[in-house]
Amino acid sequence: EDGINLEEIREFAKNFKIRRLSLGLTQTQVGQALTATEGPAYSQSAICRFEKLDITPKSAQKLKPVLEKWLNEAELRNQEGQQNLMEFVG
């Protein structure tokens, strides 16, 4: 629908959760960090719904690039050390 690749979103949601957990981050931490930079659309409950795919494809499509960018950045910081990650997450 609307050129939205559901399979891709499903895959990303699954990987997002795995990668988030491997960084040792909670949904709350991700939500707080993103709410600070991106606004309330990225709250803990939004992250939770995204991971469960309990949102419309359109919403998922909107969240995905922001979550992807944030997660990549978080992983980079983590490679530089846990301290850097925690500063990034705030």
Rank of each mutant, 00 (worst) to 15 (best):
1 E>L: 05
1 E>T: 07
1 E>V: 03
1 E>M: 14
1 E>P: 00
2 D>M: 15
2 D>S: 11
2 D>N: 15
3 G>A: 11
3 G>H: 15
4 I>P: 06
4 I>R: 03
5 N>K: 10
5 N>D: 11
6 L>K: 09
6 L>Y: 14
6 L>C: 09
6 L>V: 08
7 E>M: 01
7 E>P: 01
7 E>F: 02
7 E>T: 01
7 E>H: 08
8 E>C: 02
9 I>F: 10
9 I>S: 05
9 I>R: 02
10 R>H: 10
10 R>Y: 10
10 R>C: 08
10 R>E: 07
11 E>L: 09
11 E>M: 05
11 E>W: 03
12 F>Y: 05
12 F>M: 01
12 F>R: 00
12 F>S: 05
12 F>I: 05
13 A>K: 01
13 A>Q: 07
13 A>L: 00
13 A>C: 04
13 A>N: 02
14 K>Q: 08
14 K>G: 01
14 K>H: 09
15 N>W: 10
15 N>Y: 11
15 N>H: 11
16 F>T: 06
16 F>R: 01
16 F>K: 08
16 F>C: 03
17 K>V: 02
17 K>Y: 08
17 K>N: 14
17 K>S: 02
17 K>I: 06
18 I>A: 15
19 R>F: 00
19 R>W: 00
19 R>N: 00
19 R>L: 00
20 R>W: 00
20 R>Q: 00
20 R>F: 01
20 R>L: 02
21 L>H: 09
21 L>Q: 12
21 L>R: 13
21 L>F: 06
22 S>K: 15
22 S>A: 15
23 L>E: 09
24 G>F: 01
24 G>C: 00
24 G>S: 01
24 G>R: 01
24 G>D: 03
25 L>C: 02
25 L>D: 00
25 L>N: 04
25 L>T: 03
26 T>W: 00
26 T>D: 06
26 T>F: 00
26 T>M: 01
26 T>V: 02
26 T>L: 00
27 Q>W: 00
27 Q>E: 15
27 Q>N: 06
28 T>Y: 13
28 T>V: 11
28 T>G: 14
28 T>R: 15
28 T>P: 06
28 T>N: 10
28 T>W: 11
28 T>Q: 15
29 Q>K: 02
29 Q>S: 04
29 Q>N: 09
29 Q>P: 01
30 V>K: 00
30 V>G: 03
30 V>S: 01
31 G>R: 03
31 G>K: 04
31 G>P: 00
31 G>S: 15
32 Q>L: 09
32 Q>V: 11
32 Q>F: 04
33 A>V: 08
33 A>F: 10
33 A>T: 07
33 A>D: 09
33 A>Q: 12
33 A>H: 09
33 A>R: 04
34 L>C: 02
34 L>V: 06
34 L>S: 03
34 L>P: 07
34 L>E: 05
34 L>W: 00
35 T>F: 08
35 T>K: 09
35 T>C: 14
35 T>M: 13
35 T>P: 02
36 A>C: 07
36 A>G: 06
37 T>W: 06
37 T>F: 05
38 E>A: 12
38 E>V: 10
38 E>H: 15
39 G>Y: 04
39 G>S: 05
39 G>N: 04
39 G>K: 02
39 G>P: 00
40 P>G: 07
40 P>C: 08
40 P>E: 12
41 A>Q: 13
41 A>I: 03
41 A>F: 05
41 A>K: 07
41 A>V: 08
42 Y>L: 09
43 S>A: 07
43 S>V: 02
44 Q>A: 15
44 Q>T: 15
44 Q>Y: 12
44 Q>H: 11
45 S>K: 14
45 S>D: 15
45 S>G: 12
46 A>I: 11
46 A>Q: 11
46 A>K: 06
47 I>V: 07
47 I>Y: 07
47 I>S: 00
48 C>G: 12
48 C>R: 15
48 C>T: 12
48 C>M: 12
49 R>A: 14
49 R>H: 09
49 R>Q: 13
49 R>E: 12
49 R>D: 12
49 R>L: 03
49 R>F: 00
50 F>V: 00
50 F>C: 00
50 F>M: 06
50 F>D: 09
50 F>Q: 02
51 E>V: 03
51 E>D: 00
51 E>M: 01
52 K>A: 15
52 K>S: 14
52 K>F: 01
52 K>H: 07
53 L>W: 09
53 L>Y: 03
54 D>I: 09
54 D>P: 01
54 D>G: 04
54 D>Q: 11
55 I>C: 15
55 I>R: 03
55 I>F: 15
55 I>S: 06
55 I>N: 01
56 T>P: 10
57 P>I: 09
57 P>N: 09
57 P>Y: 08
58 K>A: 14
58 K>P: 08
59 S>A: 14
59 S>W: 10
59 S>M: 13
60 A>S: 05
60 A>C: 02
60 A>K: 04
60 A>N: 07
60 A>Y: 08
61 Q>S: 14
61 Q>T: 09
61 Q>A: 15
62 K>Q: 13
62 K>A: 13
62 K>T: 11
62 K>C: 14
63 L>Y: 07
63 L>H: 08
64 K>V: 12
64 K>P: 06
64 K>C: 05
64 K>N: 00
65 P>K: 10
65 P>E: 10
65 P>I: 09
65 P>R: 08
66 V>A: 08
66 V>N: 06
66 V>W: 00
66 V>E: 02
66 V>Q: 05
66 V>C: 04
67 L>D: 02
67 L>H: 00
67 L>C: 04
67 L>P: 08
67 L>G: 04
67 L>I: 00
68 E>A: 05
68 E>M: 02
68 E>F: 04
68 E>G: 02
68 E>V: 00
68 E>I: 02
70 W>F: 09
70 W>S: 03
70 W>Q: 03
70 W>A: 06
70 W>D: 09
71 L>V: 07
71 L>S: 05
71 L>H: 03
72 N>I: 08
72 N>R: 11
72 N>F: 08
73 E>Q: 06
73 E>A: 07
73 E>N: 07
73 E>K: 10
73 E>T: 06
74 A>E: 08
74 A>N: 04
74 A>G: 03
74 A>F: 10
75 E>G: 00
75 E>S: 03
75 E>L: 04
75 E>C: 04
76 L>F: 08
76 L>W: 05
76 L>M: 11
76 L>D: 07
76 L>R: 14
76 L>K: 15
76 L>Y: 09
76 L>Q: 12
76 L>H: 09
77 R>C: 07
77 R>F: 10
77 R>W: 05
78 N>C: 11
78 N>L: 10
78 N>G: 11
78 N>M: 13
78 N>I: 11
79 Q>L: 11
79 Q>C: 12
79 Q>W: 05
80 E>W: 06
80 E>N: 08
80 E>S: 12
81 G>P: 03
81 G>K: 10
81 G>Q: 07
81 G>E: 08
81 G>F: 01
81 G>R: 10
82 Q>M: 09
82 Q>F: 05
83 Q>P: 13
83 Q>I: 08
83 Q>V: 08
83 Q>R: 13
83 Q>Y: 11
83 Q>H: 14
83 Q>D: 15
84 N>G: 10
84 N>V: 10
85 L>T: 12
85 L>G: 12
85 L>W: 08
85 L>A: 11
86 M>L: 12
86 M>Y: 10
86 M>T: 13
87 E>M: 02
87 E>C: 04
87 E>N: 14
88 F>W: 15
88 F>N: 10
88 F>T: 14
88 F>I: 09
88 F>K: 14
88 F>L: 08
88 F>E: 15
88 F>C: 11
88 F>A: 13
89 V>M: 13
89 V>Y: 05
89 V>D: 12
90 G>Q: 08
90 G>N: 13
90 G>H: 09
90 G>C: 11
